[in-house]
């Protein structure tokens, strides 16, 4: 049973690490806006350069007519 003398401080240290991570997350502003972040997750970006040639492909036009 004396292993508890090692296990318990170890568990406490792990808990402390989690709390430290939480504090870091709060202080770096990750909890300032929790609504938008959830949506941002959906915007997995196609890896494309931002300025593309202005093409008119029919596939894209169909997409535009969706309500």
């Amino acid at each position: 049973m004396s292993v508890i003398y090692v296990i318990l401080p170890l568990a406490m240290l792990m808990g402390a690490a989690a709390v430290a991570a939480f504090i870091w997350a709060v202080r770096s502003g990750q909890y300032d806006d929790v609504d938008t972040t959830a949506l941002r997750l959906l915007h997995d970006d196609d890896v494309e350069p931002p300025h593309r040639p202005r093409s008119h492909s029919p596939r894209r036009q169909r997409g535009r007519h969706e309500p």
């Binding site: 593309r52 202005r54 997409g63 969706e66």
Partner: peptide, 10 residues
Amino acid sequence: GCGLERFYRL
């Protein structure tokens, strides 16, 4: 013009 048609799909 800015190639952002993905907006409509989203």
